[in-house]
Design a protein around this nucleic acid. Structure first.
Lengths: 218, 218, 218, 218
DNA sequence: TATGAATGAGTATTCATTCAT
DNA sequence: TATGAATGAATACTCATTCAT
């Protein structure tokens, strides 16, 4: 067997074990919440001793960062797939992207919590290393890029496209929080329907800024 | 002096001391964040020893619950004041209520964090006691009631009014999360302006359900 | 009982408990060496749980610093007592001070180790806090002050008095190290006799610098 | 090729690798101090993995012992060279030996630390194996032998020669400790000058024991 | 009602060493 | 001979909570 093949297989085994730990971490932290997802608990779930984890990850932070990275990968893939399946119509693409984003987090509550936890500096006092933070933020922004692009195709200028992206992001996140914390039950409302309603009310095309803000209820 | 009077005065003194602790807890937790707000820190800030707190609150959870209750009181008052100042026009009342809600949490990030922390079961393994949870949820619903009422006045049936409330709630919360976690900076967007834009797009009057979902971008 | 009396007794009890821990720390670290004197071991020896120690001492460093402080107190007392009993003759006072210093550490090997360990930064990465270090160093210097004073009384100028102190300090410390590490057995020599021999060879009076360094063996 | 030749070459290769590790250990431990010189750090510096070290050394202790052995070799060589260069005069030889000893450790603080660490049982609970300890002690004694020989040449009997060696050893070690721990700064004294002053005060010739102890300051 | 002491389980991380491959 | 993975016990320190006084 060649050295290359050996190295390759070693790497694969290594990745497998890293993934094993990451999966364990995911399970623990979906079951116990982020606070309860200590190194010991993760190690136990993965069938390791606490110290063994450090052979594969430098830090608790590193584990969470990897977890979040994979989550963002899945998110990006989901959004891209939805957009690709939505055809050429910008409005349809916008809706597909936004709903894919919403659906992704609706089905993976842990991922939403993870994202907010990390970005908020949940790992203080150390906090997420600034470069990691920047990288992950960029990936998050990338995942939602199709929304902005669709808005631009619908006549939005740069600022309006960014605003539309942030607004849809916000709406989705807000509904998801209400959903996952059970608060939406107070209103017997279906969060997905609300998300769709929100998208329904978006303008069919964007206008120059001066013509905005005049036809609403408030 | 009657026993009743004595008891009454004792109760008053007691309430005062509870409030003293709650104020201290608020200060600590706004200064250090939820993670840093341990019992010792709260006690020190209140001028007590750690053990003494347990004569006034059963738990750390109880402190946070009381804190959240008072926060909801202030929120309710803020929304009600805004609505009262908005005149008779239902659209204006809706907007006033929603913006008051938004502004309240925009200025008090800690209160938002507290709310989500408690409602999410941040205090596992015990979690928030079910009756407390119900009571606090009811107060939260009450704070937003003016939104639903205004929607009803604009033609919404019961379900639509509830949906509108939940939706506005979600939008505000989502934007606030983006805001407080710094994520909105990715988009260089102003969360308050986005909230207003959201309200602008609400229908001027509510229609029968069948006519919904046909005029938007998606 | 007056509040003062109560407070006084509380303080006394507190001091007692601190001393209990310090004694335990001393025992542990004389038995196991400084490396083995972890918080757990100290706590166990003192009959406490590990966490309880922190009620009485902020740090491991604080424990060692207190231990060293007490050691220096005892050293100073021993030297002063010896000097006081030596009469007015400066030469006798010098010898008494130096031998008292030597004898103190000859009988308390742990104290010597403790001193060197702490001063050397054994507690890295944090190291002994600079102000503590300065204070302890000052007390150490104070303990040896009688040597310098006696040298001055014997005609030494300031620099020579300091040099004499450092030199005697060094000789004592070196012999003690050889003694406590068992290395002196290689030479079948008695460290105390060597210390006395060293003192014997000191000049009866100090001369101007130019006349020094001309009558020795080297 | 004979088996012997093969074995011989293997041994040589082995020694080379041992030396590689020892050099790495020296570098690590001079750079990071004894505390920071873990097996992992040494292995990394040597270009090995941690486990591989154990094929060449049984222990961390074994590494340190070997290191100390080599240090003593260098010390012996340094002292011998100095003595060889000092001519025939015993007083000059004594001074040369003692100053070479002093200078060696003045320039290699790590070697001094290493020596004391090992001899003190720094590697508890096991401690330095007794035979190793004896062997190293013998080499240490050998390094200082020229001092005793010179003293003998100056009239010292066996006991006096041994005492003189131990005493000079002690003085040097003590001054070096004061020097390396920074304590000598308290006295603004130059340790090398003090060492020379100590040698200056040694007797020009040794007398019968009865005449000792009568001309000093104490 | 309050204090101060104490508990016990918890935290992340490090280390020398072992062992299957 | 070497690797890479793993162990298990160790480290200092923190926290919510309890309880005798």
């Amino acid at each position: 067997m060649s050295e290359d093949a050996k190295t390759g297989r070693q790497d694969a085994v290594n990745d497998l074990r890293r993934q094993l730990i990451l999966d364990a971490a995911r399970r623990v932290f979906e079951a116990e919440g982020l606070e309860g997802a200590g190194m010991r608990a993760i190690a136990r779930e993965a069938g390791y001793t606490a110290g063994a984890i450090y052979f594969h990850f430098e830090n608790k932070e590193a584990i969470y960062a990897a977890l979040l990275g994979q989550s963002l990968d899945r998110l990006t893939a989901a959004v891209e797939a939805a957009v690709a399946g939505a055809g050429a119509d910008p409005a349809a693409r916008l809706r597909a992207a936004a709903m894919a984003f919403f659906d992704f987090y609706a089905e993976a509550p842990g991922d939403l919590e993870l994202g907010f936890y990390l970005f908020r500096g949940g790992l203080r006092p150390r906090g997420l290393a600034p470069d990691l933070d920047a990288a992950l933020n960029a990936r998050l922004a990338g995942a939602l890029a199709p929304v902005g692009e669709a808005a631009a195709a619908l006549g939005a200028d740069d600022a309006a496209a960014r605003a539309a992206t942030a607004d849809a992001f916000g709406h989705a996140v807000g509904l998801l929080m209400l959903h996952h914390t059970g608060r939406i039950r107070l209103y017997r409302a279906d969060p997905r329907a609300l998300m769709e309603g929100y998208l329904d009310r978006l303008p069919a095309r964007w206008q120059p800024p001066s013509s905005q803000g005049s036809q609403g209820a408030g």
